[in-house]
Design a protein around this nucleic acid. Structure first.
Length: 217
DNA sequence: GCCCAGGTGGGTA
DNA sequence: TACCCACATGGG
């Protein structure tokens, strides 16, 4: 399994890499983007991020000081504006109270305890949490998303209906604990699925069929 | 018009 | 635990 997961990674890397994720200028922008992209097309998230940047508000201080109705207006393109306004506020409040608004202080803490803390913040579920930890904090934690489940179920590597923690544990136990590897692997999964696996449940033109020789494809 | 997008929280059985 | 649903917008 170790070599299989690495083999898939290397094939994807040769086809798509390096992806240079997360697309953001600062660690804090990663966090905001991770919350805004929940069940939302990234193109819409970019519009919301641009609105915040234009007003120089894409900082912990900026979001914290922003009235809720104004924040809602700025992030409107990303959808779920009431939900996401509340989630952004909760995240920033937590960051402020716990780490004085400084992500670098958060990133100095151990992975397990920081992950538990973040998961306890309203609006931060497993995927958002791991995205923040990996892409903003450089922690060695694997991000699982809908693409990951879809792709590796199709490959027969994970069972249908496997849970988040189960999939994350599989990757982390079979791969070296390396933030750079987890970073690129997740990005590659998203890139290949965006290009080939949009039709549910599984498309027939999956890139892995093109670049890999998996029996049953 | 319909479906989907880099989920999460709350309610119910 | 395992479902179900609300949440909002924009592109294909």
């Amino acid at each position: 399994m170790t070599s299989l997961l690495l083999d898939i990674y290397e094939r994807l890397y040769r086809r798509f890499g390096p992806c240079r994720w997360w697309p953001a200028d600062t660690p804090f922008e990663v966090c905001v983007g991770a919350i805004l992209t929940q069940n939302t097309n990234w193109a819409n998230v970019e519009k919301a991020l641009a609105n915040l940047k234009q007003e120089d508000l894409l900082t912990p201080e900026g979001i914290r000081a922003l009235p809720q109705d104004r924040l809602s207006e700025l992030i409107r393109p990303a959808g779920f504006l009431n939900v996401k306004t509340k989630r952004l506020k909760c995240f920033v409040d937590w960051l402020w109270e716990r780490y004085a608004g400084r992500l670098d202080l958060m990133s100095a803490e151990p992975l397990a305890s920081t992950r538990d803390e973040l998961l306890a913040v309203h609006g931060i579920g497993r995927e958002t949490c791991d995205s923040i930890l990996l892409y903003a904090g450089n922690y060695p934690t694997f991000v699982v998303d809908a693409y990951t489940g879809r792709l590796f179920t199709r490959l027969g590597i994970i069972g249908e209906g496997s849970g988040y923690e189960e999939i994350r544990t599989l990757f982390m136990s079979r791969l070296e604990s390396d933030p750079a590897l987890y970073n690129e692997y997740h990005a590659l999964i998203v890139m290949q699925c965006k290009e080939y696996c949009r039709k549910r449940p599984f498309c027939s033109a999956c890139v892995l069929q093109e670049i890999c020789n998996f029996p049953g494809n």
